[in-house]
Design a protein around this nucleic acid. Structure first.
Lengths: 149, 149
DNA sequence: TCCATTCGTCAAGGTGCTTGACGAATCGTG
DNA sequence: CACGATTCGTCAAGCACCTTGACGAATGGA
């Protein structure tokens, strides 16, 4: 009967993670990391990528991605170069500092998730992951973009 | 393993619900309903409330609440009056149209949730609800505000 | 060659929140 | 029963994050 809307639980949980992350990052020597950097960071984890690819991965407009990358470069976490084979294109990659940030982010996520597991059990956390993935895959095709459906 | 960040799954799921809701509302005769109205609507479901209470319930600044209420009144979904016993205070309530909207929102949420249940099972949906509630209660005291922790 | 397309950026706007500052009403203390 | 301190709400400005529109530069296909 708790009738708490699912949407409310989902945002609150999301915020719990994000706030926990951005509370710990400055403490560990990573100031100036804006929340929106997060998914870009993960999208760059696999190596250099073109803006075009980044746009497709993130699922937001190229203008938004462009601005995010500008800010991440300014903050020292990313590097942007002209594509060697196409002067229109740009390659975006993590800087050394960006890679350090990525490591820190993954550590913190792991810690937060461990906190959840301590509260409700690791199996439950895994179940949430599995179930939400199932819903999302069903709603789209595969698990689509990092931000926008 | 699947290593999909939990935060990503949570936002995507949230957006899936919210987008589904705001796609159906105009179709059912409720145009001009902004996403941010949602939680205010639910906060007003129990009857008239003062701005102060609304602020406490929503967990965002009084200025933000004030603006939201202005817009909801302008959209015809809420009514605001001077408090009978305290001229500084305001009471906010749903208009008739607001109550209709509330019914529609709850119907749509139920439909969307039923869709999830069809995909992953009603027990799984209930489990997600229970588990997330557990995490949130543990992190704060009770399940805190609708928006901000 | 040259026109259509692609890639990215500049500019402006909108939503949802924030902080700061304030006027009006009420309360608590002397 | 003042009167300073507090409370309630709003106005104004600003920031984060996203959008649409328009464009210059580079590429590629006929």
């Amino acid at each position: 009967m708790s009738h708490t809307p699912l949407a409310r639980l989902l945002t609150l949980s999301f915020r719990l993670l994000i706030d926990g992350l951005h509370e710990r990052l400055p403490e560990r020597g990573f100031p100036g990391v804006r929340p929106a950097f997060g998914f870009v960071l993960l999208a760059l984890a696999g190596g250099p990528v073109t803006m075009k690819d980044l746009v497709a991965t993130l699922g937001i407009t190229k203008q938004a991605v462009s601005q995010l990358v500008v800010d991440m470069v300014a903050a020292g976490y990313a590097v942007r170069d002209v594509h060697p084979a196409d002067a229109r294109s740009r390659t975006v990659a993590l800087s050394d500092r960006g890679r350090e940030l990525l490591v820190a982010v993954e550590e913190i996520y792991a810690e937060l998730e461990a906190g959840w597991a301590a509260q409700i059990g690791a199996d439950r956390v895994a179940a949430i992951r599995t179930d939400l993935e199932g819903v999302l895959r069903a709603a789209h095709g595969g698990v689509l973009p990092a931000l926008r459906p």
